[in-house]
Amino acid sequence: MIGVQQKKLAYLMVAPVVIILCSLIGFPLGYAVFLSFTVKHIGVPPQFVGIQNYVELVHSSIFRLTVLNTFIYTFISVLVKVILGVILALILNRIGRGQRALRGVLLLPWVIPTALSALVWWWMYSELFGIINWTLMRTVVPQGIPWLSTPFWARCALIITNVWRGLPFFAITFLAGIIAIPVDLMDAVSIDGAGAIAKVRYVTLPLLAPLLSIVTLFSLVMTAGDFALVHIITHGGPQNTTHLFATLAQQIGFKGGSLGKGAAISLFIVPFLGVSAYLILKFVRKRIV
């Protein structure tokens, strides 16, 4: 039923997207890939050096630490967001009166510009004067927690903030998924005498699985590419233990003027993105077709 005319129309309708993305992303991305194989200083043409930037990065202790940091930060943040997101969604689903208001309230952290919320958290984490330590020192931890001055706690601080910001999106999306599960299916399981936990385990979670994996993979990509949170709260410190690709690239490439190396750092994340993308696409294709 699709004629030549429609095909033409289809191309025409897709054209704007393709044109915009090619000109605004295609060219810059290609240029960045090219830069990563060069030594490029500000104001002079790049010199091609092959994979030298990448080789140097692999040998750099700060960069290796950054890879580890990114892995820890991304993996734990996303894991916690998924678990808490499912729990929060299940709870929200049980709430009748006031669910709309509560949904709104719980979405707040996702709405506020990260640059501003990161500042609040930084202010709250302040070891000597932050409200978190002020409260802890008067209650359960008299000596306070070294939030930003020790690697372990600095990573915790960033993960907590990331979870705070991302949890609403996870919970609301999962809630939508749970609402979509046919009521009669649930009723049928209830008649079979399944308990609440069994219902979640054998009905809700399996049905939620597709949504879970999509959100998880999207979030993996976004978390690994995070910038503002780390930049504002820890600046990559203490002792570089919280640098991510984006913050290190900013320090070396953009502020330090080594554009080639900065591009190489940013692009190092591409294999990671590629694997995620492959997984998402494989999954999503199955659903679309």
Binding site: V18, L21, G225, A246, A249, S266, L273, A277
Partner: peptide
């Protein structure tokens, strides 16, 4: 697929050429 992949590119990378 192309459209999807562009979503995965972090903006920290693109601002100079852009």
């Amino acid at each position: 697929t192309g459209i999807f992949l562009t979503y995965l590119i972090p903006p920290t990378l693109l601002f100079i050429p852009l």
